[in-house]
Every structure is written in structure tokens, then in C-alpha cells.
């Protein structure tokens, strides 16, 4: 299939030592890890009703409650009303990255339609300067999710990759990931052979 030299060149000489079955096993193992991650993500979307059930805090505007790299779990159930004091994640037209801020004003009409205003705990002013031009209020459809759970520090890898985009293409980073996968794979194999 591949010459031994080319495999060595790509740093995959391990593969040349495997027979066909082992190769397939390694590939399926990898596919398993990727697809189960995807399944968990999509499953969470269904259960929470939010298009992005887990977000990493990217800015310091909610300090000292949330720091950069903290992880938030979101839900977005239609029947739960928006109330003052809760922390929502919303998207603004013209901004790609969703914002995590606290609701400070709510006006709800008889038909249930609602407009509200947000502010970051660490900011001095409300978010009207962040909204789209001429937009004074957020509405229900702007909400991506509402913060329900908090775990500190876990999303720090995202922050590091955002701050140093070069890291994404750097070899040590992918080497580490590859080693991790191989390690998991070998561990399983060893256990299976035992």
C-alpha cells in the first residue's frame, strides 16, 4: 500500500508494523472517538434546547464571576421566561461571537413578547453600545442560551488557541493529540489482550 520509507517520512512507521486488522481497528477506534464526541454535542443540543449548550467565556466583562476560560452550561427552554438578574448568552447582528451578560431590565407585554437590556458585571455601562446600530433592546430570538452551570478554567485551551492562533498549526500541539489517541488505543488493546 505505502512504502515503508514514506510512512517513516510521515512519522507513521508504527503503521507499517500493523497488519490489516490492526489498521482497521486503529481507524475505527479513532472514528469512534470523533463520532461519540459529535453525538454527545448533538444530544446535548436536543436536551438543552440551545444551539450551543456549552460555551467558553472569552472576555473579562463578567469578572469576578466568570473569568476567561471558564465553562458555562446553557439551556434555552422556550417556556421559561427571561427575568432580571439572570445571565444570558446572546448574539448581536454583525457580531460573530456570542456575548455572556446579565439581564438588568425586562419589559414583558400581555402576549408574552419581551424586550430586555443586558450589562456585563464588570462594565460601567449597559450593552446598548454593543448592540446593532439603533438597537435599544434584545428580544427572545437573540438569546442563544441561559447560564445554568459553571465550571472554572476548563476551557482554557480555547483561550490559548484564540490568543496564539499559531499554536493551532504547530506540530507539538497535534503531536500531543496524536500521542493521546495512540495511548488510548494501545491501552485498550493491551487490556483486550490481557
Amino acid at each position: 500500500m505505502f512504502s515503508k520509507e514514506s510512512l517513516v517520512f510521515w512519522g507513521l512507521e508504527d503503521l507499517s508494523r500493523m497488519n490489516f486488522r490492526q489498521l482497521i481497528y486503529q481507524f475505527l477506534n479513532f472514528a469512534m472517538i470523533v463520532s461519540s464526541a459529535l453525538m454527545i454535542w448533538k444530544g446535548l443540543m436536543v436536551v438543552t434546547g440551545s444551539e450551543s449548550p456549552i460555551v467558553v467565556v472569552l472576555s473579562g466583562s463578567m469578572e469576578p464571576a466568570f473569568h476567561r476560560g471558564d465553562l458555562l452550561f446553557l439551556t434555552n427552554y422556550e417556556q421559561e421566561p427571561i427575568r432580571a438578574g439572570e445571565i444570558v448568552v446572546f448574539k448581536v447582528e454583525g457580531r460573530e461571537i456570542p456575548i455572556v451578560h446579565r439581564v438588568i431590565k425586562v419589559h414583558e407585554k400581555d402576549d408574552g413578547s419581551v424586550k430586555f437590556l443586558t450589562k456585563g458585571d464588570n462594565n460601567n455601562v449597559d450593552d446598548r453600545g454593543l448592540y446593532a446600530n439603533g438597537q435599544a433592546w434584545l428580544t427572545r430570538k437573540d438569546v442563544v442560551g441561559r447560564a445554568r452551570g459553571f465550571v472554572p478554567f476548563v476551557g482554557i485551551v480555547t483561550i490559548i488557541m484564540n490568543d496564539y492562533p499559531k499554536l493551532k498549526v504547530s506540530t507539538p500541539f497535534w503531536d500531543y493529540l496524536a500521542l493521546l489517541f495512540l495511548y488510548i488505543g494501545n491501552d485498550k488493546k493491551r487490556n483486550a489482550l490481557r
Binding site: P64, A65, R83, A84, G85, R102, I104, K105, V106, H107, E108, K109, D110, D121
Partner: peptide, 27 residues
């Protein structure tokens, strides 16, 4: 780790069934 205190004014008005306005807060 932290308490976020906020004082809310809540009322009904002609325009809205529910109004909530945060008047004061403290960390």
C-alpha cells in the same frame, strides 16, 4: 465564590404586563 446582589423594581403598567428594572447592584 461570590454573591451578585441586585435591587429590582417590579410593577405592572399599561404598556407591559411585567416590568423589572434593576436599580442598584453590588458584588
Amino acid at each position: 465564590k461570590q454573591l451578585f446582589l441586585y435591587l429590582t423594581a417590579e410593577y405592572e403598567s399599561k404598556n407591559n404586563k411585567l416590568n423589572q428594572v434593576v436599580l442598584w447592584d453590588k458584588i
